[in-house]
């Protein structure tokens, strides 16, 4: 507002917020994906799959609260515009997150005859959440345009984001489980990997066509060269993962972490691509980061806290992953 145009504080906050969204997409991504993949016909595999995410989902979801919180805190105007425009998909996403969050606990505590129903609620809730998130992303990319073309694009995005989450979820299972479930997961990962690749290609082209500014950014000068290594990296990752997944289970489970790592890499690449396309806008082509930022003294107050607390958060997140390291076992209270 009153701040000089290239103030660094809003930049720091947009960075933190972006990082939170990315970490959210990766972490909650895999547990949402596992939820979507739950097999309807195999209770014991459902158990193992849910055990594999049990200790993590709550902290994973907190990254969403963090990301939304930072958007709210640092860019309140953008928060208002975005969530009024995405009013209904947001409500649906929340309904989905509520359903799955509670099913996770009810399934083991309700009468056992109802366990299966809660499992289905878990699956359905996860699907509702991933579809809504993908739809919201699509609407955001097309600047909340209402034409049927844009809505169609958003629906496609809903499917692709779901595929992406399923991919990272399946990759997680390849890493965390053994035996038949692992083989099944590898198969899921292979299919969703391809779906995700198609999705990424479509989104890339649509993105370029949406606005001249984005086109210029990517193709309008020497930076066009960067597309070469990026495409290569994408291609390499997709192909190697595909080959690896065909070979699961490997002897001694060699490289069971590779698909998951690859999924993370792909998520990061996609995210950076989008961020580059839309910078410096926070609401595409309507509101820039600098116009939307809160007052300096407020940002500063949070910044100090974040500098102290974020390293601690990273620390205990790592601690928690270490405690539950290795192949999944049954969860007991």
């Amino acid at each position: 507002m009153m701040d000089a145009p290239l103030d660094w504080l809003p930049m720091v906050f947009v960075g933190l917020m972006g990082l939170s969204f990315l970490v959210y997409a990766i972490l909650d991504g895999y547990d949402l994906g596992v939820g979507v993949l739950l097999p309807l016909d195999n209770p014991s595999q459902r158990d193992s799959m849910i055990y594999s995410i049990g200790p993590f989902w709550d902290a994973n979801e907190t990254w969403l609260v963090m990301a939304i919180g930072l958007l709210l805190v640092a860019f309140p105007k953008a928060h208002s515009i975005i969530f009024q425009a995405l009013y209904l998909p947001t409500a649906l996403m929340l309904a989905g997150l509520i359903l799955r969050g509670v099913s996770f606990d009810f399934r083991t505590k309700a009468p056992s005859t109802e366990k299966q129903k809660w499992d289905f609620a878990f699956k359905f809730g996860s699907l509702l959440a991933t579809m809504s998130q993908g739809y919201m992303l699509g609407r955001y990319i097309t600047s909340f345009d209402d034409s049927w073309l844009s809505v169609g694009f958003a629906s496609l995005s809903a499917v692709c984001v779901t595929a992406g989450y399923c991919f990272i979820g399946a990759a997680w299972l390849v890493m965390k489980t053994e035996g038949e479930l692992q083989r099944k997961a590898a198969k899921w990962a292979k299919i969703t990997n391809i779906l995700m690749a198609i999705g990424i290609i479509v989104v890339c082209f649509t993105n370029l066509l949406i606005d001249q500014q984005i086109m210029d950014k990517w193709l309008g000068g020497i930076q066009v060269l960067i597309i070469v290594p990026i495409t290569f990296l994408f291609g390499f990752t997709f192909v190697t993962v595909h080959i690896y997944l065909g070979k699961v289970p490997m002897e001694n489970d060699v490289g069971c972490w590779y698909p998951f790592l690859a999924a993370i890499l792909l998520f990061i690449l996609c995210f950076c691509g989008l961020a580059y396309s839309f910078y410096p806008y926070i609401v595409p082509f309507k509101l820039t980061i600098f116009d939307a930022a809160s007052a300096r003294e407020s940002l500063w107050f949070i910044f100090v806290g974040a500098a102290v607390v974020l390293p601690m958060i990273v620390g205990y997140t790592i601690f928690s992953y270490k405690v539950f390291w290795g192949k999944t076992t049954k969860l007991n209270y």
Partner: peptide, 25 residues
């Protein structure tokens, strides 16, 4: 904003991360 932000940063992550250790650990 900052008050909500501090709640997320100082409280929610702490709860969510150690909850799993408390429950299953």
């Amino acid at each position: 904003g900052p008050l909500l932000g501090y709640e997320v940063m100082t409280a929610f992550f702490l709860e969510a991360s150690f909850l799993s250790i408390m429950l299953f650990g």
